[in-house]
Design a protein around this nucleic acid. Structure first.
Length: 237
DNA sequence: GCGACAG
DNA sequence: ATCTTGTCGC
């Protein structure tokens, strides 16, 4: 896999990064379904040397067996600090380098982090989806923005995550009874465990993102793709 | 003005 | 994210 734009654009000030997000967000497609899914990738980033080295892990699983087909780990110097809302600028360069080493292109990508459940509707999953031009889903462990009611206790059940701010894109996303924008779902992936936040990244809608997240659930909190990527990125296994 | 704030 | 031991529970 290759990419047409170079990485110079990643040397940005926070203000420039925000401006870039505002420009890119309307390009994010949040409807439809990925076609003919044969394999699903999982992505996660870890850090070493007290944060000086960034470690990107990508795993590719066959669907529907969820069997591991390939895994890649890429290391490079960290070039940006962590700033809430600007996570993609810190993690995506390494993720792209890891993707470049994949033998086959996945049909769907699951990312550790938010999709459109982001202040400017451009979380790391959405942003990565634009670069890869692939359907992506964000699976996060904590909320960045938005509110939600009580989450059902049953595995597979969920509660909508909503926000007052409307998206920049003209083709808008779902709203609830109060006209709030639905930006994701608090999914109970496991009983007695804190829910995960599932939000569409790029090229699919909320319902589809949820369907795939649930379809990829194994016995643990995280869906298999991100669970395995997490394991690799954190050196555990 | 005062919090909150993905990984 | 990362630094970190043992411990409780299915």
């Amino acid at each position: 896999m290759t990419h047409h734009e170079d990485l110079h654009a990643w040397t940005l000030t926070p203000e420039e990064a925000v401006a870039l997000q505002r420009r890119l967000a309307p390009r994010v497609i949040r409807h439809g379904k990925p076609d003919a899914v044969t394999c699903i990738a999982g992505v996660d980033i870890g850090f070493e040397d007290g944060g000086e080295t960034t470690r990107a892990a990508v795993v590719v699983l066959d669907w529907p067996s969820l069997t591991l087909r390939q895994s890649v780990v890429h290391r490079e110097p960290t070039r940006m600090p962590y700033i809430p809302g600007l996570l993609s600028f810190r993690e995506i360069p390494a993720a792209l380098a890891a993707f470049a080493r994949l033998e086959s292109c996945p049909d769907l990508v699951m990312v550790d982090g938010q999709g459109i459940a982001h202040p400017r509707r451009l979380g790391v999953a959405s942003h990565l989806g634009l670069w890869l031009d692939l359907p992506t889903i964000g699976v996060a462990k904590k909320v960045l923005c938005g509110r939600h009611g009580e989450v059902p206790a049953t595995r597979g059940e969920w509660a909508p995550l909503t926000d007052r701010r409307r998206a920049e894109a003209p083709a808008d996303i779902e709203t609830d009874a109060e006209g709030r924008v639905v930006i994701g779902a608090m999914l109970r992936s496991r009983v007695n465990v804190k829910p995960v936040i599932v939000s569409p990244g790029h090229r699919l809608d909320q319902a589809t993102a949820l369907e795939w997240a649930i379809a990829c659930l194994g016995k643990t909190k995280l869906p298999e793709p991100t669970r395995l990527a997490d394991r690799l990125a954190s050196w555990k296994g």
